[in-house]
Write a protein that binds this DNA or RNA. Sequence first.
DNA 1: ACTTAACCGAGACGGTACGTCGTGTCTTGCC
DNA 2: GGCAAGACACGACGTACCGTCTCGGTTAAGT
Lengths: 229, 229, 229, 229
Amino acid sequence: MAQNHTRSADARNGNNGTDGKRPPGRPRSEESRQSILRSTLKLLKQPGGFPELSIEAIAADANVGKTTVYRWWPTKAALVADAFSTSADEELRFPNTGSVQRDMSLQMRRLIRIFRSKRGKVVAALLAGGQSDPELIEAFRDRFLWPRRKQAYQTLQRGIDRGELPADSDLDLVLDLLYGPIYMRFLIRHHKLDESFADDICALVLQGLKRQPHHRKLESAKPQLRTVL
Amino acid sequence: MAQNHTRSADARNGNNGTDGKRPPGRPRSEESRQSILRSTLKLLKQPGGFPELSIEAIAADANVGKTTVYRWWPTKAALVADAFSTSADEELRFPNTGSVQRDMSLQMRRLIRIFRSKRGKVVAALLAGGQSDPELIEAFRDRFLWPRRKQAYQTLQRGIDRGELPADSDLDLVLDLLYGPIYMRFLIRHHKLDESFADDICALVLQGLKRQPHHRKLESAKPQLRTVL
Amino acid sequence: MAQNHTRSADARNGNNGTDGKRPPGRPRSEESRQSILRSTLKLLKQPGGFPELSIEAIAADANVGKTTVYRWWPTKAALVADAFSTSADEELRFPNTGSVQRDMSLQMRRLIRIFRSKRGKVVAALLAGGQSDPELIEAFRDRFLWPRRKQAYQTLQRGIDRGELPADSDLDLVLDLLYGPIYMRFLIRHHKLDESFADDICALVLQGLKRQPHHRKLESAKPQLRTVL
Amino acid sequence: MAQNHTRSADARNGNNGTDGKRPPGRPRSEESRQSILRSTLKLLKQPGGFPELSIEAIAADANVGKTTVYRWWPTKAALVADAFSTSADEELRFPNTGSVQRDMSLQMRRLIRIFRSKRGKVVAALLAGGQSDPELIEAFRDRFLWPRRKQAYQTLQRGIDRGELPADSDLDLVLDLLYGPIYMRFLIRHHKLDESFADDICALVLQGLKRQPHHRKLESAKPQLRTVL
DNA sequence: ACTTAACCGAGACGGTACGTCGTGTCTTGCC
DNA sequence: GGCAAGACACGACGTACCGTCTCGGTTAAGT
C-alpha cells in the first residue's frame, strides 16, 4: 500500500520470518512515525481540510524533519490515507441481533454519529482529496469501505437465510441504497443527517424488499434526450 | 451568492428596475467574464482537477489580468461554482411519460451519463472543494441540486396523483434513496456506475414503495456500542 | 517644461494676447491642478519619499481621477518637479549687507534650515529621484539651483567689486566649495549639519580666497594607480 | 549590518572563536551569494538604475529562487549596499608622495574617475536609495565613506606634521570642503565633473589653508528672514 | 572499541503560485 | 472636451510550500 515506497518496512524492521536478520544502520524511529500520523490527523480536522494541509506544517507540528516525512510517504495523500486507516481500527463492527433491519440500522446509526463528529472531517477530507487523487480514494475503499462491506454481506446473508430478504437480492445494490443516502447527505448537506435517518432508510429499503419476493429487472427505459450539464 | 463579493452585478448593470441608472466608471467587461469562465471549465477538465487548477493559469489562458479574476471572484472555489452553474443551465429536465418510474429512471440515466463524461470532473471538483469550503457546497446546492429537486418533487407528485406511489411518501427520503447511490458510486467508485444502475435503483425503490401503501416508521433501534473511527 | 505634454496650458487657457479665443470644451480645472500639486507635496514628505510615492495615492488624496493626473503630467517625476517648483517660490533670496562673507553665510544658513526642516525631504526626494530620472534632476537645476546661482554670482561679484575677493576668482568653483559641503552632509549625513556649519565654510573659503590675491592653477597631478570601485 | 537580518553570518559560519561550532542544517551556499551580488551589480548598471531594478530579475539572472534573495537581504536597498561594498574593496587607497596637496588630488581624481564610470551609477543609486532608507545610507557611510575618511585623516595629519597645513585645522571641515563639491557635481550635474576639478579644489582649499596659520571662527551671522521652500 | 550505514533534526536550495498593489490605458455618463 | 469613477492587461511584490539537498549528530550491527 501507500505507506512505504522506498523500501519495505517489513524488510527493515521485519523479522517476519525465521532469519531474524536486520539490515545495518539506524532503524526507523517508531516515535517519529506515530508523531507524524498523530499530527496529520490533528491538522486534518482543522478548517481547510486536506487541500490546506501542508507537509511543512505536519513536520513542524510533529517536531520532525521534512525529510523524514518524505522518506516514508511519497505524497500527502498517502500520508493521510495511512493516518486515517490507523485511526479506523476494527470498530464499526456489525451487531447480530437476529434482525437484518435492526443490525443494519444500528450500524448505520453509528456511521452517522461518526460523520457528525470531528472524525467526520477526516472522512470528508479523504473523499474530497480522492476526487483528484486516485490513490487516495483507493485507500479509502481498501481500508475503510471494503472491510465493512464484507461484514455487511454477512449480515445481509443472515437475513436471507432467515427469510427476511429475498434470496436473489442484489447485495451491492442494497448496500448502496442503504449507505448512498447517508453519504449524499453527509457530503452535500442538503438535509439534516441525524441518526433516525438510518431507521427511515432501513424501513423503506428492507421492508420494501421483504414484500418483493421475486426481484425482477425493470424493463430498461431508453434515454431519448440530449443533455447538457 | 458566490459570484459577486464586492458589489452586486445587478447594482452595476442596473436594469433591476425602472430607474435604468448605471454606476459611474467603466462597466464590467462581459467578454472577460465569459473568457474566464470558459477557461476555468476547460482547465478543470484536465488532469489534476480542482487542486491543481491555478488562478494564474486561468488568467493566462483567458488573456486576462489576474486582478480581473480576483476582482469578481473571491476564491478559486467561487469561480468554479460560477463556471459550473453557467454550464448546467436548464438541462437535466425531467420528462413526463406518464410513469414515475420511467420519468425518474430517464433523468437519472442522464445524470449518470454526465457523471461519466468529462463534465463529471467539474461536479466532483465542486463536491470535493465543498468539503472544506461551505460557500462552495452551498453554491452547488443552490444552483444545481435544488432546481432539479423541485422538478423531481413534481414528478413524484404526479406519481402519487396517479396512484403509483403512496400518498404519504416522504419525498426527500425517496429522492435521497434514488440519487444517493449514484452519488456514492460516483464519488467512491467502488462499483461500476453505468446507466442501467438507474433502472435497478428505481425498480427497487419505487416498486417497493408501490407495494407498501401505508408507510410506517420502524421502531427505533437504540445504538449500544462505542465506536472508534 | 515637464508640466504639459499633450498640449500647452497657455494655448488652452491662454488669452495671452488679444484674440481672446478659447478652444471648445470644458476648460481645465484649476482646482484639480492645485489639489494634485498639494497632495503630491504632502505625500512626498512622508516616509518612503519619491520611490514610494504613487500616482494612485496622489489621485485618491486629491479626490481626482487618475486620468486627470496622467492627462497633464507625463511621469511621476514631472509631477514632483512641478509641485516642488511651485513650492520653491522666490524665497532664499540673497541679502546685501555689504560683506560677501556675511551675505553668503546668511543665505547658506537659511538653506541649511530648510534642509533640516520637513521641506528638506522634498529636496532629498527630488535629488534621489533625479539619479535615475534625468528629467527630474534637470527640473531641480532649472527651477531651484540656477535661479539661486544667478543671485549668488551677483553677490560674489559685489565682493569682487569691493575688493573682498580676487578679481580672477572662479565663481562656479567657489560656489561649489561653499554649497558642496552642505549638500554632502545633507545627503550622506555623516556629520551634524547645523547652521554654524555655514559660517565655518565661509570663513575657510572666503578668507582663504581673500589672502590669495593671485589665483594660480595647481600643477596637475597625474593619476598613477589603477582603481577599482 | 544590512547584509544579514535573521541571523548573523558569523554565527552560522562559526569561526568567530575557538569552538568551531556550526549550526545545524544545510549551510548557506556561497555560490548563490556571489551569483546574486554579481547579478545585482550587473543589472544596477543598466538603464533605469535602482528603481527599475527588480528582485525578480536579479533572482532570474542569478539562477536563484527569489526566496534565497529574501532570506538573506531584507530589502533591495540592503542587497545593493552589500553588492556595492563587495566591489569597493580596498581600492581608492591614498598615496603618500610627500605632499598633501598631491596626495589628496590624486585620490580625488580617482574618485572622480569612478564617478564618471559605470560604477558611478551604483554609488548614485545607493545615495538615492539612502534618502528614503536610513539603513542604506548608513551602509554607504560605514562601508565606503568612513574607511576612506580614516585614511584621509592620516594623509592630512602628515601634511600638518610637515607644516603644510596649520596644526589646528578642522579635518572634517577640510574633507567636506574637498569632497563636497565633487559629490555635488556628481549628483546634481550642473557642471562638468572632470578630473582636473580635483586639482582646482585642492589648490583653493589647501593653499588657502596654508596661508591662514591661525584658524579663527567667523563671528556668527544671525539669520533674519523667514524662508519658504 | 571501531567501522559502517542508515536514520534523524535542521534548514538552505531552486521553484511555482499565491493574493495584492501600482502602472498606464480604456470606457462610460455627467458637466 | 475635461472630469470622476473605475475596470482593464500587465508585471513585480513579498510569502508559503513544494520536494530536494546537505550538513552534524545519533543508533545499532557487524567487525
